[in-house]
Design a protein around this nucleic acid. Structure first.
Lengths: 220, 220
DNA sequence: CGTCGTCTTGATCTTTCTCAACCTGTGTGG
DNA sequence: CCACACAGGTTGAGAAAGATCAAGACGACG
């Protein structure tokens, strides 16, 4: 997919629009595809690149203290959001970013991106500012057990995230982490919701079959 | 405190620096003081102002679904960070912001701030961009019970946040929320740490008396 | 001095974490 | 093409942690 594949008016990405791709200017970022599971950057490693998500989703993990290997997933970046934008203000990445699905990302190096901002001016930095602010607002706090039982949190997540009665496809361990629970607990909550008739859950997908029941559990 | 109280070189705030206060230009934000407990803005109410924290700290609360009144505290804004910057990109605030201590904030209306950015140009929007990005990176995910016991999380928080052996002064209920536990649980954890001899805790302050013990519990 | 909000303490019960075994779909190599 | 190994997911039994409910203590403030 060439970088000018997004030229058509309103569907153009904010970076491309700020760059004036429509007017024949070059976008500072170039598209690339990664497989699911690919690690884009590691927490506290040298921050040299940033990405704009075109398609797919990317999970952000952060170590909590001196924890063991993996860290906890705490946010997901979706199409229209930036990943690794902290490279613009600091030397190391704040999070480990991993592709949850196959993703199409536009990449830029920090230096070229900074140059681009300086060349284009306020329109560019405003565009980046807007992206960063909206991404942060979209990050809700991870819920804890004080915010309702595991079943309820899962029900609420399904109610919020399901499109066409299908939950987003991402590893269950990641979802569990985002919801502040262990994979086992998440799995048990799905079983309970299945028994209640709210959902049908197989190993590879979760379908909502009775939204009313789901909402009832979520509200409870 | 007049807005040019921060003129002295490196201690000048990023907004003032971008505005060129040193060169006699006017800062777009004007300082103001609020008492502890003052609510700056309410979640989803009309977003018309943003603040820069000069002194003190501000807690951000967000409703989790259809929860009861208060919502959960999930982040703290400290000196050098912005509050309510989402007004630049959306109509309603994402969080309820409450002053935790007496605070000195610089305020600006959305419109005047936007005008200022357009007048000053890329230097201004870059400064805002930097502030927003670093604030977001500073927000860690709220821990849950999977990330260690309550005592351990409290120990870690004390180890991270205590200055001169004193924990930051803020309501215990807020700290509990940030640590993903109930006020009762937080209080019990403090008792345990007191018994271990790591801290001395009264109703109005928490002092670290044995950092080694504290670190041992935190690492565990 | 009395009231109120916040914090603490206590007893009990539910939840979920823990540890372990097992299942299942995927990919690999013979 | 099949057997196998592997990662991710599920299920189960048990224990420990934290939530809940309730009452009391302390400090702030009028």
């Amino acid at each position: 997919m060439p970088s000018d594949a997004t030229l058509d008016g309103s569907k153009q990405c904010p970076i491309g629009r700020a760059a004036g791709c429509g007017a024949g200017r070059r976008c500072p970022m170039s598209p690339r595809t990664y497989e699911a599971g690919a690690m884009l950057c590691g927490e506290s490693s040298a921050a040299e690149r940033l990405w704009y998500v075109q398609h797919g989703s990317v999970a952000l993990f952060r170590e909590t203290g001196d924890q063991r290997g993996a860290g906890v997933p705490w946010a997901v970046r979706r199409p229209g959001q930036l990943v690794g934008d902290e490279c613009l203000v600091q030397e190391g990445y704040s999070d480990t970013a991993v592709a949850l699905t196959q993703v199409t990302l536009c990449v830029a190096s920090r230096d070229s991106f900074n140059q681009w901002i300086d060349n284009v001016g306020v329109v560019a930095s405003r565009a980046v500012m807007g992206l960063v602010i909206s991404a942060r607002c979209a990050d809700g706090p991870r819920p804890t057990s004080a915010e309702g039982s595991a079943v309820r949190r899962v029900a609420r997540w399904l109610a919020d995230e399901a499109r066409d009665g299908r939950a987003p496809e991402m590893p269950r361990g990641v979802v569990a982490g985002l919801l502040g629970m262990l994979p086992e607990t998440f799995s048990r909550a799905l079983s309970r919701l299945s028994v209640m008739g709210a959902i049908k859950s197989t190993r590879r997908e979760i379908r909502v079959v009775d939204a009313d029941v789901l909402m009832a559990v979520a509200a409870e």
